[in-house]
């Protein structure tokens, strides 16, 4: 039950969505884009989201696209996580998505909503960070396409009134070896203590992490340490020196414990991907 009311809009096109946003703002409203709506509803209930006009983007064709075109996988932002998992064209994405929340909730949670949400974890972004994907953003001046690394700095830096329409991923990445593991405080339920996704691109090892810090990130600095020659243990120790700050210290686990868990996970994952060489 939400303590406030809002108007509900269901635009059919990207342009209509953007136009609605501008118009509502001019009318003095506080519009938000609404995708799965799970965060808007659950945080709204606690007054942590303020809006009086929601623009549901689920009826916009582009936002529901899920195809391969010109060597690019196109993932619409309003696709539910389970829709992505079921088709399984991008196994790493399926894997990362399947760790979020629970199955029924993921029938509602969308790729774009997860990436653009307030929650620290946003695990669905990890595969896109690892594959140097591009984001397609709609705004006043129409659509623009940008490398995700330019726009995703701790969160997706959108201008007011912009929304994420699609993510484009070079299809060559779809079949590269990967591992993605989510470790929780206890057993199989709950937020991540740490989620690590690793992708092997030829000789390059790419790492993206969620749950360690209050934001998900591609661990470029850590990758460099891992890339070096030497015993795995040493390389991991070196990598741990490049963990961004702050490390989370909360209900799920202390920061010291998180670093311990990360170290273990890196050992396991890298050993699995690198095979048995030292």
């Amino acid at each position: 039950m939400l303590p406030y009311d809002f108007d509900y809009y269901l635009p059919k096109t990207v342009e209509e969505g953007v136009r609605l946003f501008q118009q509502l703002e001019r009318e003095g409203k506080i519009p938000v884009y609404y995708s799965g709506g799970t965060e808007i509803i659950t945080l709204g209930r606690l007054n942590l989201v303020e809006t009086n006009a929601v623009i549901d983007i689920k009826a916009i064709g582009e936002c529901k696209e899920f195809t391969i075109k010109d060597q690019q996988l196109i993932v619409g932002s309003a696709l539910s996580l389970t829709a992505v998992e079921e088709k399984n064209v991008f196994p790493l994405l399926s894997k990362a998505a399947s760790g979020v929340a629970d199955h029924t909730a993921r029938n509602k949670i969308t790729v774009g909503g997860n990436i653009c949400g307030q929650i620290f974890y946003r695990e669905a972004v990890l595969p896109f960070l690892l594959t140097d994907s591009h984001v397609v953003i709609a705004g006043k001046n129409g659509l623009r396409q940008t490398p995700i690394h330019q726009l995703f700095k701790r969160n997706l830096k959108l201008q007011k009134g912009e929304f994420l329409v699609q993510l484009h991923t070079d299809r060559r990445f779809l079949r590269m070896p990967y591992v993605c593991v989510k470790r929780r405080q206890q057993w199989d339920t709950g937020y991540p203590l740490i989620t690590v996704a690793v992708l092997k691109k030829e000789d390059e090892t790419r790492i993206a992490i969620s749950g360690l810090c209050p934001f998900p990130f591609r661990a470029f600095e850590m990758e460099k340490s891992i890339q070096q020659v030497g015993p795995l243990g040493d390389r991991i120790q070196e990598a741990l020196r490049h963990v961004p700050q702050p490390v989370l210290d909360d209900v799920e686990g202390s920061s010291g414990y998180r670093v311990f868990v990360l170290e273990q996970m890196l050992q396991d994952l890298l050993r699995e991907l690198e095979g048995n060489h030292p």
């Binding site: 405080q185 206890q186 057993w187 199989d188 339920t189 709950g190 937020y191 909360d250 209900v251």
Partner: peptide, 28 residues
């Protein structure tokens, strides 16, 4: 194995939701 209230230094409960206070689930 899992359930407890977590208190902060001011005695506030940090996990008064089933999202963060977690009973056993199917499969566990």
């Amino acid at each position: 194995g899992r359930e407890t209230f977590v208190f902060d230094e001011w005695g506030r409960v940090l996990n008064p939701q089933l999202r963060t206070y977690r009973p056993l689930r199917y499969g566990e």
